[in-house]
């Protein structure tokens, strides 16, 4: 990856041009032709340096609701509970933590009613006690972008 690639990445991480000929704009910004800009981006998509090129949708922006949930699962039954939880497509992250509240998952759903329905289903299907619903009450910070360093690589 050379400096032109890095300049392109820094530009298109946050601002891929939403216009008819985006690669013309990208090329002009970094000093190469439209075709070269396109070939470089395509090569980085093909090689996997760029994992995805598209929109990062926001659950709140779309009017959906998201929450963090925890359960206290008896030792030895956590895989069983995790398998039930993981079946729901709105469960995007499901993991075990070292605590009495040991099974954690994030849930995204179109509205509060759907959240209640899904959590009720998980409780009755698992039969291992309540799901503790911990929606955000107050937000102090969310930082998701990590700047790609042009000098010195990653």
């Amino acid at each position: 990856m050379d400096d032109v690639d890095k300049k392109i990445l820094n530009m298109i991480q946050t601002g891929f041009p939403v216009e008819s000929h985006p690669y013309q704009t990208i090329g002009a910004a970094v000093g190469v032709t439209e075709e070269e800009a396109f070939n470089r981006v395509k090569a980085m998509v093909d090689s996997g340096v760029i994992r995805r090129l598209g929109a990062s949708f926001d659950s709140r922006g779309l009017g959906w609701t998201s929450t963090l949930c925890a359960m206290k699962i008896p030792a030895g039954r956590i895989e069983e509970a995790a398998a039930v939880v993981g079946e729901y497509h709105g469960v995007t992250h499901n993991y075990e933590r070292a605590h009495e509240f040991n099974l954690w998952f994030t849930l995204i759903a179109p509205d509060e009613d759907s959240v209640a329905t899904i959590l009720g289903e998980i409780e009755s299907r698992c039969g291992m006690g309540p799901v503790y619903n911990m929606p955000m009450l107050q937000k102090f910070k969310i930082k998701v972008d990590f700047k790609f360093k042009e000098a010195g690589g990653e």
Binding site: T14, V49, R51, L53, L62
Partner: peptide, 15 residues
Amino acid sequence: KKYYRRFGATLRHQK
């Protein structure tokens, strides 16, 4: 309308 947070490339090694 903030339906999406950003439009662009997500890198494999960004973290």
